[in-house]
Nucleic acid binder design. Structure first.
Length: 202
DNA sequence: GCGCCGATTGGCT
DNA sequence: GCCAATCGGCGCC
């Protein structure tokens, strides 16, 4: 094989593992949205939600309803929901089908289509384009349209970084939740300037 | 049916 | 640091 391989979309097997493992290994991968004008960003912050045994998970105690149906789908499925009635949040389902565990995308380093992102976000500062789960969905035009779609076949794909492994990461408690708030399931690229605000000072 | 609350954000004190 | 905006799901009983 050639030494210059092209990065490929992450296979289903990548997601068929515990969410905390996937959350860690998603750091450094590239999210490419072809919903409208092409935009892309590198993942710098994620959170794992562990499904039926995680009080903070939408799949806690196997609660199923129309809104979170995608969460119970096969690994590699997008789960997109509306937060606080205003902001979309994008997750990738992990583990076996029915387990309802997933990884929330919390922040990206903007890589492509920054001008499009600025228009969609209504801001000019690069730091404010994708530094939050709601922000990155707006920048990449991610809405309910993506909910339930398999990543590989959807308008928003995730590409692995060939060669280099994930960058050094810091693990912290999850942000903005009240239940199981102390569980160390948030993963942040070390010293990245692109993470969401609210990073614990520590 | 009603009221509360949330995996957020941005503007204001 | 505090808080309103805004809407869908949930528990209530």
């Amino acid at each position: 094989m050639s030494s210059t391989r092209r990065a490929a979309t992450l296979p289903v097997a990548f997601f068929d593992r515990p969410a905390e493992i996937v959350a860690r290994e998603l750091l450094g991968t590239l999210v490419v949205s072809t919903a409208g004008s092409r935009t892309a960003g590198r993942i710098v912050e994620t959170e794992a939600y562990l499904g039926r045994d995680d009080p903070a998970s939408h799949g806690y105690r196997n609660r199923r309803h129309a809104r979170n149906e995608a969460l119970f789908g096969p690994p590699g499925t997008w789960y997109v929901y509306l937060s606080y009635g205003m902001h979309w949040c994008a997750n990738l389902v992990c583990g076996a089908e029915g387990q309802a565990s997933a990884v929330l995308l919390r922040a990206l380093e903007p890589v492509n289509g920054l001008e499009t992102m600025r228009e969609r976000r209504g801001v000019t500062a690069d730091r404010q384009l994708c530094s939050g789960p709601g922000q990155l969905c707006q920048a990449l035009a991610i809405t309910r349209d993506l909910d339930g779609a398999l990543m590989e076949r959807s308008a928003v794909k995730v590409f692995g970084s060939e060669g280099a492994g994930p960058p050094p990461a810091v693990v912290t408690p999850r942000i903005g939740i009240t239940k199981a708030a102390d569980w160390p399931l948030r993963f942040v690229v070390e010293a990245s300037p692109w993470t969401s605000r609210g990073v614990p000072a520590q």
